[in-house]
Design a protein around this nucleic acid. Structure first.
Lengths: 203, 203
DNA sequence: CCAGCAACAGGACAAATGCTCTAAGGTGAT
DNA sequence: ATCACCTTAGAGCATTTGTCCTGTTGCTGG
């Protein structure tokens, strides 16, 4: 009997080790490797691509979404499961676009992880049902690239002038974009706009 | 040989299950119970208090810091280890004030958890060394209660008028507090002030 | 080819925000 | 009882932010 080989990617050492221990208690799954960021994961994969890659999203160096995109390109046989804290429709959409077969929340019971890996290994898709339903009805990202860039910086506390300087725009233009973003999101200032956009996974 | 009995508290099901699996691989430790929030943990403890309680901080219903305080009061024999993502001096200080014997970051290698539990069980303290050093030199929270309240709301996007209404203050007063907070934190607007304060664990 | 849209810019105006100052009452410590 | 500090308030002023316009350019789908 051959076990399913899994590569785990997660930046929090404690969680990484714990997930590995969890998966190793499954008779049909083996943790073939672990990495704490996207780059390290890719290095490991060039030596021996695993059958399933389980990755977090928010990590230093390279996010799980970027990693998924590269894996789809260079290791098309490896299935990707995204394992994250964030129930954001925007993330889910980006994950599926990046070629992930699974999207699973850390909120769910531990047993679902092994089950998801088995299903994905069999060629099925696994998406958190609540989140899928939400994503179905969810409004798509109304922001343009420029609006996102500017909102991001404004949400980090940069002033209009700072943003204008960094992006080589006039202050008036920056204010226009912010005003437009605020209107599109139906809120009343840049702070709320940035918070809302982040919570939806648009930034 | 009697094993160390541990109660695990963590709101993310996947992480909770994984940590349990991890600890159960240790010959001298047994997971006597798990809970996904502070209330549930207290219910379990009234039946049979464990020797060591390992808890996350940010959880719904009751935070790990509040839980630690109650445990110190009602179950003084149980040692408490805080296990969290956040390397914030403010949290560490509050944890120690609340009677926790250990403060450990999820960033650290998985092996440190079991080791920390053993040390704490033997009556020693365990604090992440980097964080301890930082906490030692770290500037204390310069904000007053009022300033914190107001900065919190402003950081959530509420306007000066909204805050004034909610706290039954005049707008001028609210602006005074914000101005004072901004000056104390050495930043240039309310957004940066709220971000900085949050990152230090002051909000 | 043209309509539609994103990107960019600037002006004018209103509203919100931030700064500085003054001033009062309360509390806790020395 | 004096000092230090928090809370509250208001006024005046400069700056920043947000809104509403008009307008140009360039790209893309039909």
């Amino acid at each position: 009997m051959t076990k399913i080989e899994v590569l785990l990617v997660e930046d929090q050492g404690m969680v990484l080790g714990a997930l590995a221990a969890l998966l190793n208690t499954e008779p049909d799954i083996t943790v073939a490797g672990t990495a704490s960021n996207g780059r390290a994961a890719l290095d490991l994969m060039t030596k021996k691509p695993p059958q399933v890659l389980v990755t977090d999203i928010e990590m230093p160096q390279m996010t799980g979404l970027e990693l998924a995109a590269v894996v789809k390109e260079r290791f098309p046989k490896t299935r990707v499961v995204i394992l994250t804290t964030f129930a954001r429709p925007g993330y889910l959409r980006r994950a599926l676009d990046a070629g992930a077969q699974g999207y699973l929340l850390k909120d769910r019971p531990a047993a679902e992880l092994a089950e998801a890996i088995r299903r994905v290994h069999r060629g099925l898709r696994v998406v958190d049902p609540d989140l899928a339903a939400e994503a179905w009805t969810a409004d798509p990202d109304p922001l343009t690239d420029r609006e996102r860039q500017i909102l991001q910086r404004a949400g980090d506390g940069m002033s209009t002038a700072d943003v204008a300087r960094e992006l080589s725009l006039s202050e008036g233009t920056v204010r226009n974009y912010l005003s437009e973003s605020i209107a599109k999101l139906g809120v009343s200032n840049r702070i709320e706009a940035a918070r809302l956009a982040r919570s939806k996974g648009w930034l």
